[in-house]
């Protein structure tokens, strides 16, 4: 394999290590920013939850618990797969790394399909954001529209991040297959993987908030 290619750093960096360090720190700072982005809407959710405990319990109880839980397992598995792929690429096993990234992408796609199935189910029941739909003519609990609006807001934003993550992983996969990424440039895959893990971590918190309790 051609993994022994020595990469030259960009001209404003002294070494490739410095460049990789900068890229890694940059990604972490970006993730910190993402945490606060999701944090804002989660803080709003929590505040409404404290305000309307009963309505939010009703909302959680009505949610598609099984589908949401399966999705959690899907994302956890995908995270494990992409972590293994980084490990494989570092060890020079490019083919294995490629397969594992492909598996991650497949699992991510499954996640989105299940998510859309859930949305379809909600729409069928007459649950739309903003308290619109026939569901809310039967269920009046004050605060219930806020639960579902926030549900759509939070999962929608998360699904958007999943889509972005899938795009990034897709680009990385094609570069692995074209042998443009190897052991020496494994940090590029690592950055994509870190982003994917963040998407996973956010879902780890959305799951109990929206589906469990």
């Amino acid at each position: 394999m051609s993994d022994t290619t020595v990469l030259a750093p960009q001209e404003h960096f002294a070494t490739i290590e410095q460049q990789a360090h900068a890229a890694r720190l940059g990604m972490w700072v970006f993730l910190a920013s993402e945490v606060l982005l999701f944090g804002a809407i989660i803080a709003l959710f929590t505040s409404y939850q404290v305000h309307y405990p009963d309505a939010f319990r009703q909302g959680v109880d009505h949610n598609t618990k099984l589908l949401g839980s399966i999705n959690t397992g899907v994302l956890l598995t995908s995270s494990t797969a992409v972590a293994c792929s980084v490990h494989a690429l570092r060890a020079g096993k490019r083919r294995l790394a490629g397969l594992l990234v492909a598996a991650t992408i497949a699992l991510g796609a499954v996640f989105l399909v299940i998510k859309l199935t859930e949305y379809a189910k909600h729409f069928h029941e007459g649950i739309y954001p903003g308290g619109a739909g026939s569901f809310f003519q039967v269920h009046h609990a004050r605060g219930l529209p806020e639960f579902w609006t926030l549900y759509f807001g939070m999962t929608g934003l998360h699904a958007l991040h999943v889509t972005i993550g899938l795009t990034v992983l897709g680009v990385l996969l094609s570069r692995i297959m074209r042998a443009e990424l190897g052991a020496a440039s494994a940090h590029r895959l690592e950055l994509g993987a870190i982003y994917w893990h963040l998407v996973d971590v956010i879902w780890i918190f959305l799951w109990p908030l929206l589906y469990l309790a």
């Binding site: 700072v29 920013s33 993402e34 606060l36 982005l37 807001g153």
Partner: peptide
């Protein structure tokens, strides 16, 4: 800038949704 601005971004998006789609956050 890095840690505060995303919160603004989020809350402005919510107001845009309230204003244009009447989601009512």
């Amino acid at each position: 800038q890095v840690l505060a601005t995303p919160v603004l971004g989020m809350v402005l998006l919510l107001v845009v949704l309230d204003n244009s789609l009447h989601w009512g956050f």
